[in-house]
Design a protein around this nucleic acid. Structure first.
Lengths: 352, 352
DNA sequence: GTGAGGACGGAAACCGTTTTCCTAATTTTC
DNA sequence: GAAAATTAGGAAAACGGTTTCCGTCCTCAC
């Protein structure tokens, strides 16, 4: 009695004619079993040519019985398409890369694309090594991501395949980049604070040499200026840490003019600020409202009260990057800088 | 004047004969330029056969000039090896997967292997889809990771390629799994608390149905029993959240018997506990010493004082998994469960 | 001067698919 | 009932490498 196990759509792990150690079935195996030529098998499997229904069915069930899966390397060889893309994270895979990667991977997976993961760890040598590897693997395209939104030199010029930068952007204006609208996000934060009646707003953020810190600070100041106001004191630049948040909050709170809100450059900073505000005997949000940035769940939700925060929607951004890459691979490139709006997530730290 | 740009080891982005949109050079192009046959080019590039130094050099410089990179699909086709592995994260890519992935990717990259990233999102359908895809791509092996250390059914049986489970393990004892020694880590935490003179130790941790929670709790109790002591009250099972840490700490602190240390099932819980302990007027570590688990930097370092914590050394674990996979691919499998020791990282929350 | 042997490099098979012909058989048309 | 049109499926080329097998030329020994 012949086993009929191994449906095409079924569990590949199911024991079929192909057992451990056996080499995977090839199209020739299927052809032999079905009693037809390999060309016919290919046609049956791909719905090309004209075949009798009976023949097609015989091939299909032979393929099923052997658990046949076409060798993608062979397909790639004569189609010129590998249906793979490379994802290079220029710096270490971290909190920002993950949602980006997930979004991108999801969008690509739907297009039957597989993703090569490359972690360049901030090392230009590794980066170029990976680039060479990816080119050698004939990926159909590359997504470059990184922790900083600052523009960076293109990963290569005159490459034979499209490249999309996500989160980071390329200094070459002709390259396709997808970046969050950090300035818009900061503006939304300020708008919200104004809407809940705050007027004396301080800003505590990361290092001044960090692109995100300066962009967000400038946008916040601009927005207040448009409302006929100004930041309560110059922005406090420091580090992206809770510790800095605590320190800076102490400085702000000991100042002459009572502030009624603090816009923070990150959720980590906001947490530190929250600690210091509470320690000073002030209540959040009654006395001081607090807005963070990143909407990092463990920080925003672990804080007491939970933090209102600006969400850069990184997963969407990754998805968009993937879609632009797919379009470019399909011959419809979208050069230039594409910005993705931020969302403001309102929670207890500003709820009135 | 002929451009000589494009060293083999140089920047692939450099403008060479191959410019944007041009198809990558093939071995035939190199052969034509060097005035030899393709077979000779292959020999020159791979150091096979016997060639005159002059010929070899001519080929090499032709390859260099064209920026030739062998098409890996073609190589895969006749070597049977793709030099790729698949990495399936059964649940969403998160805090635990990342260091694992990074360690594995690093170890594999050194072996010239590329990694396919597959995020199964806790969906068995997606998981099987990815498995099929990977098999179709003829990866040389697969690493399966996940957020939970609990054993899971094998991803497939009778697969033609080796599989290594990292962090999670397979219920099939014959499968190769690499897991952290959570019990050992918990024991180290208890040993340390005992060493700094604590005797009344409580335990607050995650949900009782979570494997890690029960294993760590049991190991802590066992270790105390060995020392002729016991936990100060039964372990408090709840959630892996700061909020639960705060709640549980209040319960513990309001008990009859004064405790002098709390061992927490995670750093997040420990942070919540720290808040509650401080709020109760007790000092850390003088009155209550605190040990967390995971050594998650933002939590452990953001806490005040910084948390002593058990580090599962996930990057090492990922690296080990990759090495075992490489060995298995090379025909030297290491079936069974391999445990990796945890490290205790001592910080202010227990410093005497 | 002849035969043996080594050095060099070309021709061709092969890996697993897809696709383009092309032939043979069947059906349609008048 | 013969010519034309259609259908079914096979043979072979192509994709881009690697490897095996030979043939040619040169050198050396006798």
């Amino acid at each position: 009695m012949t086993r009929s196990g191994g449906t095409l759509g079924g569990m590949p792990g199911r024991k079929t004619a192909e057992t451990a150690g056996n080499r995977p079935a090839t199209i020739s195996d299927v052809a032999r079993l079905a009693g037809v030529s390999v060309g016919t098998v290919s046609k049956a499997l791909n719905g090309r040519g004209s075949l009798r229904a009976e023949t097609r069915h015989r091939v299909l069930s032979a393929a099923e019985q052997l658990g046949f899966q076409p060798n993608k390397a062979a397909v790639a060889l004569n189609s010129g398409r590998t249906y793979t893309v490379g994802m290079i994270t220029t710096d270490t895979i971290g909190r920002f890369s993950i949602p980006l990667m997930m979004g991108a991977e999801d969008a690509l997976g739907a297009g039957e694309m597989s993703v090569f993961l490359c972690d360049a760890r901030d090392d230009p040598i590794r980066e170029q090594y990976y680039l060479r590897t990816l080119l050698s693997r004939r990926v159909d395209g590359i997504i470059v991501t990184g922790r900083r939104t600052q523009a960076r030199p293109p990963i290569g010029t005159g490459l034979p395949i499209p490249v999309v930068y996500a989160f980071i952007s390329s200094t070459d204006k002709g390259d396709c980049s997808v970046v969050p609208d950090e300035a818009g996000g900061a503006a939304k934060a300020i708008d919200h604070l104004l809407a809940v009646g705050r007027r004396r707003i301080a800003h505590i953020t990361g290092p001044e040499h960090h692109h995100s810190a300066t962009v967000r600070a400038a946008a916040a100041a601009d927005r207040l200026a448009e409302a006929g106001l100004g930041l309560a004191g110059p922005p406090l630049f420091g580090e992206w840490s809770e510790n800095w948040g605590r320190q800076a909050a102490k400085i702000v709170l000991s100042g002459d003019n009572e502030i009624d809100a603090i816009f923070c450059g990150s959720d980590q900073i906001a947490r530190g600020v929250a600690d210091a505000v509470r320690a000073s005997g002030r209540r959040i949000p009654e006395d001081v409202a607090l807005v963070g940035f990143d909407n990092w769940d463990v920080m925003a939700l672990g804080s007491q009260p939970p933090l209102t925060s600006v969400d850069m929607d990184l997963e969407k951004l990754g998805r968009t990057a993937a879609e632009l890459l797919l379009a470019a691979i399909g011959g419809r490139p979208s050069p230039g800088r594409h910005t993705n709006p931020c969302r403001l997530v309102i929670r207890g730290s500003t709820a009135s």
